[in-house]
Design a protein around this nucleic acid. Sequence first.
DNA 1: TAGAAATGTCAAGTCTTATTTACATTTTAT
DNA 2: ATAAAATGTAAATAAGACTTGACATTTCTA
Lengths: 66, 66
Amino acid sequence: MKNNIRVLRAERKLTQGELADAIGVSRQTINAIEKGKFDPSLPTAFRLAGVFEKRIEEIFEYHEEG
Amino acid sequence: MKNNIRVLRAERKLTQGELADAIGVSRQTINAIEKGKFDPSLPTAFRLAGVFEKRIEEIFEYHEEG
DNA sequence: TAGAAATGTCAAGTCTTATTTACATTTTAT
DNA sequence: ATAAAATGTAAATAAGACTTGACATTTCTA
């Protein structure tokens, strides 16, 4: 799964720490998600979509795994 | 978080087992999600949206917790 | 160009989500 | 009414999301 959080965050001039605070996770979690280390939970994805005023599908691009 | 998987599944005349097979999880996982026992992972939510040809936001309704 | 801010990363641990197995109950169809 | 299909539920375990803390590197900015 890919995402464009880094771009959206830059557009809004937010640091990883500020975005983390805004959605209630740690800065390292934002970093890990941006770097594709793991996918967020569904609630966290919803909160990200809320901050960016985007649909989840506009932030995350799902590809079949395997 | 609420969801209308049960309704969407009924509209398409799918059993929990058939839906489970379609997205690659166990039947019990579908049952648990329908009953609100937990939220699916983001990849699982995407697969559900794919089967139902809906956006994630059309299937799941997020409410702040706390 | 030096200090501060931001980012990258790693390890260890916690908590939540997902799976399996197994069995009970309910619904559907004959 | 009976058999078969579907659903409900629960315990044990595995897998993944997330935290904290620590330290290194990169990028801003005064």
